[in-house]
Design a protein around this nucleic acid. Sequence first.
DNA 1: CCCTGATTCGC
DNA 2: GCGAATCAGG
Length: 191
Amino acid sequence: MSWTDERVETLKRMWGEGQSASQIAKDLGGVTRNAVIGKVHRLGLSNRAGVVPADAAAPPAPVEAEAETPAPQAPAAEAPEPAGAEPEEEEAASPIPARKQIIPAGQPLPPQPSANEISPEALASVREVEKGAKRLSLMELTERTCKWPVGDPATEDFWFCGLGVQSGKPYCEAHVGVAFQPMSSRRDRRR
DNA sequence: CCCTGATTCGC
DNA sequence: GCGAATCAGG
């Protein structure tokens, strides 16, 4: 596959939308995420942040070199520095009021089934699994780890199962069992 | 282990 | 220009 205008367009669009390189690659097909990243760089649209930090760095070229440059008259100095004494206080006071980073909701948390609707067998199974759970943190969850939450999120005693998921499902086999109950089973069980 | 983007460098 | 290999981080 080659980078046709069309494909490049898709690449630009998706990258702009914040899609990951691997997702874009998967979507385009015929290329790897590396190819995508490579292309992204060549196209010079790396930093998705769009506008690079206005100032950030941009250290006014150390163009001091040029001994030439008669330079008519550069009233360089301006502020007499009235006893300022401030040595080197860079970091211009940015008007940015400490932006609070709101924790993204992310994927919907697994539905905590009401205990009163779970079969004893399933419960036992879950208990069993929890003993061997990986106890992953939120950050460690992936598409292939069981996302079954255990414990109270408000305490330190909180973690996710983390065992291998059953292809496609968000939970491991045991947890899938209690999360996705057949209609029939619910139907029969008296509420 | 899974994933992310960044970089390098032979082709 | 291309992208696999590799790096650095989560």
